[in-house]
C-alpha cells in the first residue's frame, strides 16, 4: 500500500494526515512535507496517524528529526490517533519524553 500524506493548515497549526504503513521504502514520501512543516516558523505540528497501522524505524527516525527541528523554537511534535502497537514502541523507546501523544 502506498503512503499518502495530506497537509491541512488551520492558521498556525499544521496537521499532516498520513494514510498507509510507514516503512523504509516509502518514508521519503513523508520526509519532505514533514521536515518542511517542522521548519516553518511559529507553527504547531501534529501528525495524524489514525490511518497508519504500521510504523517502521524509518518512521520513528522522521519523528525524531521533526521533534528536534521543532525543539529549536520550543515546540513539541504531536502524534494523533496512534495505534496501540505503535504506541508501545514509542513508549518503550522513550519517544514519549519529547513528543506528545494526543487523542
Amino acid at each position: 500500500m502506498s503512503l499518502q500524506v495530506t497537509r491541512e493548515d488551520d492558521g498556525p497549526h499544521i496537521v499532516l494526515r498520513v494514510v498507509g504503513d510507514i516503512n523504509a521504502a516509502n518514508a521519503e514520501t513523508l520526509e519532505t512535507p514533514l521536515i518542511e512543516a517542522a521548519t516553518e516558523p511559529s507553527t504547531k505540528l501534529t501528525i495524524d496517524l489514525a490511518a497508519v497501522e504500521y510504523i517502521s524505524s524509518a518512521g520513528l527516525r522522521l519523528f525524531m528529526m521533526a521533534a528536534k527541528r521543532l525543539r529549536t523554537r520550543g515546540e513539541r511534535l504531536s502524534l494523533r490517533g496512534v495505534q496501540p502497537s505503535a504506541l508501545i514502541v514509542l513508549q518503550m523507546a522513550n519517544f514519549t519524553s519529547f513528543l506528545d501523544i494526543v487523542a
Partner: peptide
C-alpha cells in the same frame, strides 16, 4: 531512564539510518 534526552542526540546520527 524516563528523562527527555532529545537534545543530546546529534542531528547527523538521526539522519543516518
Amino acid at each position: 531512564g524516563r528523562a527527555d534526552d532529545l537534545d543530546s542526540v546529534p542531528d547527523e546520527d538521526i539522519e543516518d539510518p
